[in-house]
């Protein structure tokens, strides 16, 4: 099996000596789903944002889809990675001045230089996969949060990525809207998409993930398969966190 992400000893520190990432090492293989959990400020967002170059790191090695990046943050390599890695944000970050379909076709047309018609056809296919093809002509502000997040997933998929990163994709949604987004993500996992998901959704992590990574203050505390992590976490800190989550 081909590793998609290989990180070795990633370290990132802020000026005050605080470490956002502290010797983080991990491997994600093709077709696997990794869920990253941890309290806020634990560095989980920072971690997945380094995987497409939105964050830099100071020390360590990172290889995404065989492209090696180091702390020099080589712009050309990062562009190459971004063309093959999709990202979905907590706040959707759709482009408000573009229609739903234009949001999706922007990158295929201008980054991959695909033909407009071709990109639109594929965009419509993705929207129908997400069950929102009837909204193609609308603008982001006319859609509900759940619908916007599904558009954001379709937008990330439009570049036919090999890896999808999700940064708390359901944290800004109403409880009723969370399911529709999680279902879309489940279907992607079933289709064999490699995904790294930062989330607090235990149900999703239990059902879909192959590994759960637990982080606290920049360190990887524990990396276990979900059945072990949720029933019998090895580390005291993980158990404490899970107890807190259960109370909510």
């Amino acid at each position: 099996m081909e590793p998609i992400v290989v990180a070795k000893n990633l370290t990132k520190s802020y000026t005050k000596g605080l470490r956002a990432l502290d010797n983080v090492s991990l491997t994600v293989n093709q077709g696997k789903v990794l869920v990253v959990m941890g309290p806020s400020g634990s560095g989980k967002s920072t971690l997945i944002r380094t995987f497409n170059g939105l964050e830099t790191f100071d020390k360590g090695e990172l290889s995404i889809l065989g492209i090696k990046v180091d702390s020099t943050h080589d712009e050309r390599k990062i562009q190459k990675i971004r063309r093959r890695v999709g990202m979905v944000f907590q706040q959707f970050n759709l482009f408000p001045h573009l229609s739903i379909l234009e949001n999706i076709t922007l990158a295929p047309v201008h980054v991959q230089k695909r033909r407009q018609i071709e990109a639109e056809e594929y965009g419509m296919y993705l929207l129908s996969q997400m069950g929102i093809d009837s909204h193609a002509k609308k603008y982001p502000s006319q859609l509900s949060g759940g619908e916007q997040q599904r558009v954001a997933i379709a937008r990330a998929l439009a570049l036919k990525p090999k890896l999808l990163l999700f940064d708390e994709p359901t944290s800004a949604l109403d409880p009723e809207r969370i399911t529709e987004v999680l279902d879309a993500m489940r279907r992607l996992a079933e289709q064999g998409m490699t995904m790294i998901v930062v989330t607090h959704e235990i149900g999703f992590a239990k059902d879909v993930s192959d590994q759960v990574l637990f982080m606290d203050s920049g360190k990887v505390i524990e990396k276990s398969p979900p059945n072990i992590f949720f029933s019998n976490a090895r580390h005291e800190r993980s158990r404490k966190f899970l107890n807190q989550l259960d109370k909510h």
Partner: peptide, 21 residues
């Protein structure tokens, strides 16, 4: 700034971000 991040993560370059976003 999140607009620029979203555009960056789609692989748009600096000039494309200025022009389209």
């Amino acid at each position: 700034n999140t607009q620029i991040e979203a555009a960056n993560s789609l692989g748009l370059n600096q000039y494309q971000i200025i022009q389209f976003i």
